[in-house]
Simulated scan of single mutants.
Amino acid sequence: MGFSLEAIGGLLDLWRDRGRASAEVKQMALDHVAALERKIAELQAMSRTLSHLAEACHGDDRPDCPILDDLAGQGPGGNCGKQ
């Protein structure tokens, strides 16, 4: 489920502790869900940006490339005009 090794260790410790409160396990799960949702949002933003850049690319024999320009910080919002 994408837990870090540290989190898995914590879950195993809780699993071994039969006197644990299930609230601890639930909180770990909810914290992980929140982290996954943040990561999903970041990946979706990267996907939208790259899709936009790919649409702007002619994909022909010309050397100009908005994808590489953006990665180099020379695209929209980057260091326009500076090389």
Rank of each mutant, 00 (worst) to 15 (best):
M1W: 01
G2S: 11
G2Y: 02
F3S: 01
S4D: 09
L5Y: 05
L5E: 10
L5S: 11
A7R: 04
I8A: 11
I8K: 07
I8G: 03
G9E: 04
G10P: 02
G10K: 01
L12N: 02
L12D: 07
L12H: 00
D13I: 04
L14P: 00
W15S: 10
W15H: 03
R16W: 03
D17A: 02
R18I: 05
G19F: 00
G19M: 05
R20T: 04
A21F: 00
A21N: 06
S22E: 02
S22Q: 03
A23Y: 01
E24P: 01
V25S: 01
K26E: 07
K26P: 00
M28F: 03
A29L: 11
A29H: 00
A29I: 08
L30V: 07
L30F: 00
D31G: 07
D31R: 15
V33C: 11
A34K: 07
A35D: 03
A35F: 02
L36H: 04
E37K: 06
K39N: 13
K39W: 09
K39T: 10
I40W: 09
A41G: 02
E42N: 10
E42K: 11
L43W: 07
L43G: 01
A45V: 05
A45P: 00
A45Q: 09
A45S: 05
A45C: 04
S47R: 14
R48C: 06
T49V: 10
T49P: 01
L50I: 14
S51Q: 08
S51D: 03
L53Q: 09
A54V: 13
E55D: 14
C57E: 07
H58Q: 14
H58N: 10
D60Q: 12
D61E: 14
D61T: 06
R62F: 09
P63D: 13
D64P: 00
C65I: 09
L68M: 09
L68P: 00
D69C: 06
D70M: 07
D70S: 13
D70T: 11
L71C: 08
A72F: 08
A72M: 08
G73F: 12
G73T: 11
G73Q: 06
Q74W: 04
G75Q: 05
G75M: 03
G75D: 10
P76W: 13
P76T: 09
P76H: 12
G77S: 07
G77P: 01
C80Q: 11
C80K: 04
C80L: 13
G81F: 13
K82S: 11
